[in-house]
Computed example of a mutant assay.
Amino acid sequence: MSLFDDDRPKKQPAHEIGADLTLISADELSQRIGLLQQEIARLEAERDRKSASKSAAENFFR
């Protein structure tokens, strides 16, 4: 661990679930919605990949 690690600014997450939205502009809300939609698509693709892999394994062992 370096002596300077504590001096680095902490990177804030793009969006925190349940965060207060009152101080966020409409443009920033739109950007966050876009990021979350991309993340949902990524999660769904991974779920589908895992489901296909599970189905293939089940069919193999029948």
Rank of each mutant, 00 (worst) to 15 (best):
M1R: 12
M1Q: 14
M1W: 13
M1D: 14
S2M: 11
S2E: 13
L3P: 01
L3Q: 08
L3H: 02
L3C: 02
F4N: 12
F4Y: 13
D5I: 05
D5E: 15
D6Q: 05
D7K: 03
D7L: 09
R8W: 10
R8A: 09
K10H: 12
K11A: 11
K11W: 14
P13V: 06
P13E: 12
P13C: 05
A14E: 15
A14H: 13
A14Y: 14
H15N: 05
H15M: 10
E16H: 04
I17K: 03
I17E: 15
I17N: 07
G18Y: 08
D20E: 08
D20I: 01
D20T: 00
D20C: 01
L21T: 10
L21E: 15
L21F: 12
L21D: 15
T22S: 13
T22Q: 09
L23D: 15
L23P: 00
L23C: 02
I24W: 11
I24G: 08
S25C: 03
A26C: 05
A26Y: 03
A26N: 05
A26K: 04
E28T: 00
S30E: 12
S30F: 04
S30N: 04
S30P: 00
Q31W: 11
Q31G: 05
R32F: 03
I33N: 06
I33V: 10
I33A: 03
I33D: 10
G34K: 06
G34A: 13
L35I: 01
L35Q: 08
L36F: 04
Q37R: 04
Q37K: 04
E39C: 00
E39F: 01
I40N: 04
I40Y: 12
A41Q: 11
R42K: 07
L43W: 14
L43K: 12
L43N: 11
L43Y: 15
E44Y: 02
E44M: 00
E44W: 03
A45R: 02
E46S: 01
R47G: 09
R47T: 08
R47D: 14
R47L: 12
R47F: 11
D48A: 08
D48W: 10
D48N: 05
R49Y: 10
R49L: 06
K50R: 10
K50W: 06
S51C: 03
S51Y: 13
S51Q: 13
S51R: 07
S51I: 08
A52Q: 08
S53M: 14
S53D: 15
S53R: 09
S53T: 09
S53I: 07
K54S: 05
K54I: 11
S55R: 08
S55K: 10
S55G: 00
S55T: 03
A57H: 09
A57P: 00
E58P: 00
E58R: 10
E58V: 06
N59S: 03
N59D: 13
F60T: 06
F60G: 06
R62L: 13
R62C: 09
R62D: 12
